[in-house]
Design a protein around this nucleic acid. Structure first.
Lengths: 330, 330
DNA sequence: CTGAAAGCGCTAACAA
DNA sequence: TTGTTAGCGCTTTCAG
């Protein structure tokens, strides 16, 4: 039960060969019931655990998948990861979570280092060539790369923002601003496009001052609040590219003496846990994060375990608007 | 540059032995400059990456540490993990993040499976014997186990709550309630004790209705708000065992038409990012999360790489009160 | 400073 | 159903 029992120790105690121990543990069906019991007893007695380095090396697979997240502090990701864990657990796979914002060389070792058999990538800012170089199946979640043919799961961001703009327009808002995400980010671009499309569709005009810069963070939302408040004839409704920036915006407005939704209506995007508990509760575009994680993980697991080919395009899961207290009739 | 170059391929291209390639990569000093260049060129040309399964097996170490977190959705943990990453990166170690809430058997394989050399444990609810069975160095962060002699990094929770109670008392509050954490949790217990101690120290009495049940979550805070609001002569100030529960409490009060801090003063514990942006901004006990992560990681890395023995007790890092807008004079 | 050779602990063929 | 036999790809003595 002590330091480190190896498979040979178990074999000796059970009175069988190491191959039989190995089989009893990973392919219980291919071993006699009696033998299996003997082995399991020996395992318990010796406290044996397989050494995965040895197993991975020999079997050329790690029985693990890696989830690459750009920013663990972003609460948006945690719910996704939770459902990935569920699916992976059910399939007998270990989940490793890693930061995709690592410096140069290490970024290239994912997959190739033999530590995981597949990757769930939640970061759309990586170089497509780097990703291709990983040499293991990759499924994108939420974000995506420019590279064509990559499997992914996410929502229709253009349509999502359309919901938000439509809601504000229906409430009588004519001047609707957009608090964007970081430049170059695929989500920012799509959501920005959704704003343009939806404004046109509603017959509304976008004025220069209606474009507010942001980067998804609360701080950027707070900064945008200052810009917005200092603008003459500023918009009466603001659609934000993320919940966090929306919360930052409302919070800073409050400090400036401007109330939401009395002085300004604000819509977020994501529906993170805090949004429902904010004061006022945030009207936002809900993203089915659990479904993202589950579907992406299922795709990857099927590819890994049953050789099911990965799709060559994104799977789109619809978002919907959750109307709460941060928006009001103009 | 293709599928999978092995060390032998690099050796052939460079015209040296595999042993030399290995040395050139991990012990550059013990190899001639010219040879090293040849090898590095061959590595670049072949696109070689070491197979860590093979390396880990042979060298009997994984060059990785595991961070075990009970709940990734809790934003409290992310800042801690970020600084762990920094320290580990600097030491050339990989960080693996895993969920400590996994079911039975898998819980026993951490450390013993050869996938990591040490563990940072952020969950105080695990069985001490299970942890001991991991067979690798473990450092607790924030929470701790009953087992004596375990190294850990955290704050003085009793003192922290004392700060909160003292603040409310100084503001003239006489009836101060405590919204607790989950029963049996070490943090809950310590913070509950801090409440009892501080109330006594301030000469204040704890009435039965001043004890509000919670479990650190926003929802539990919201439930407590109902209980509190329905109580006659309810407390004028509430100290909460976590920021999330404090936010839930304030939010639900607001829905009940009760304003913070006008109708009730609320103090949180943790100082998560959202607290500063809540309306009102939350007065709370700040926990130095980055320092927790950094110190714990440094302890572990020193033990792993330089054989520095781990301390046999917790390292305490002081918390401090951040006064914001959720508390007011009675 | 470099090469040859021997495994790390395990699983996958291949036999029996 | 079980055992025997080879390695998986790498690092590490041990020589030279």
């Amino acid at each position: 039960m002590e330091t480190k029992a190896r498979i040979a120790d178990v074999a000796r105690v059970a009175g069988v060969s190491t191959a039989t121990v190995s089989r009893a543990l990973s392919l219980p069906d291919r071993v006699g019931a009696e033998t299996r019991d003997k082995v399991l007893r020996a395992v318990a007695q010796t406290g044996y655990r397989v050494n995965s380095a040895a197993r991975d090396l020999r079997s050329r697979r790690a029985r693990a998948i890696t989830v690459l997240v750009p920013n663990l502090a972003n609460t948006f990701f945690s719910r996704i990861i939770a459902s990935v864990q569920e699916v992976a657990d059910a399939a007998g796979l270990t989940v490793q979570i890693s930061d995709s914002m690592v410096e140069g060389p290490r970024l290239h070792t994912f997959g190739r280092d033999g530590r995981s058999d597949g990757i769930l990538l939640l970061d759309g800012t990586l170089d497509a060539q780097t990703v291709a170089g990983w040499g293991v199946p990759v499924v994108m979640v939420c974000e995506w790369l420019d590279a064509p043919g990559m499997p992914g799961v996410g929502t229709d961001n253009v349509a999502g923002i359309g919901l938000a703009v439509g809601h504000l327009a229906a409430l009588g808002h004519r001047d609707i601003a957009f608090l964007g995400g970081p430049a170059g980010n695929v989500l920012s671009d799509a959501r920005g496009q959704g704003y343009v499309d939806a404004m046109a569709r509603s017959g509304l005009t976008i004025r220069p001052q209606d474009r507010l810069d942001g980067d998804f963070t609360m701080e950027s939302g707070a900064r945008a609040a200052h810009v917005w408040a200092a603008t003459p004839e500023s918009a009466t409704g603001v659609v934000c590219a993320s919940d966090e920036s929306a919360l930052g915006f409302i919070s800073e407005c409050d400090r400036l003496g401007l109330r939401c939704p009395d002085d300004v209506s604000v819509v977020g995007f994501d529906d993170i846990e805090f949004s429902d508990r904010f004061i006022p509760p945030l009207t936002t575009v809900h993203q089915p994060r659990a479904a993202f994680g589950r579907q992406a993980a299922e795709l990857l697991v099927a590819a890994l375990q049953n050789g099911v080919p990965l799709p060559t395009q994104r799977t789109i899961i619809a978002s919907h608007l959750v109307v709460r207290g941060s928006t009001a009739r103009r």
